[in-house]
């Protein structure tokens, strides 16, 4: 049973995006695409978020902010990089104030293609991120169980 897969909470941050992907992320939450069918809710609080949606490329001003949001999110967490800019910098890759894709700052789990990414693609990305969350949670449980077992064995030996 994985409640995290059924109800992942999202947080969205616009690193230097052109707005196109941002409004498509918003469009995902409105009736026609309705990401809330998958149990998603957009939250403004990184402490409550499971999936981090990043649009746009990273520059030296917003890289600490992206990193900060990521660090505040509780484990397990997944990062979805939306659009060509978040992947490689897109058409802005050669601009002086763009340092590249999101992967240069935080580990990315899923890429969503497109410029601007279509809402359907974003939904795909979110659904995939929810699956990754479930796998990560499983792995976390397994390690925790192993640790507990180890501790128990240690105690028995003593």
């Amino acid at each position: 049973m994985s409640s995290i897969e059924r109800s992942p909470w999202l947080i969205h941050y616009d690193a230097s995006s052109c707005n196109g992907c941002d409004i498509e992320v918003l469009a995902c939450l409105t009736p026609v695409y309705d990401a809330e069918r998958f149990g998603c809710i957009v939250t403004g609080d990184p402490k409550q978020a499971d999936i981090f949606l990043v649009t746009g490329s990273v520059n030296h001003l917003n890289a600490p902010i992206v990193k900060n949001i990521y660090d505040q999110m509780p484990e397990p967490k997944a990062v979805v990089a939306i659009g060509a800019c978040a992947y490689s910098g897109g058409v802005f890759a050669e601009c002086y104030n763009v340092s590249g894709g999101v992967a240069s700052t935080i580990p990315v789990d899923v890429y969503v293609p497109g410029c601007a990414a279509k809402p359907e693609s974003i939904l795909d990305g979110v659904v995939r991120a929810a699956q990754i969350l479930k796998e990560k949670e499983k792995a976390m449980r397994a390690t925790r169980k192993a640790e507990r077992k180890g501790r128990k064995a240690e105690g028995a030996q003593r």
């Binding site: 490689s88 890759a93 050669e94 240069s104």
Partner: peptide, 20 residues
């Protein structure tokens, strides 16, 4: 000064591919 630092940008091609 900037463009001479970054020769890959002028020639085009796989600048982004190398990065990503």
């Amino acid at each position: 000064a900037i463009s001479s630092e970054d020769p890959g940008a002028a020639t085009g091609g796989a600048a982004s591919m190398g990065g990503a």
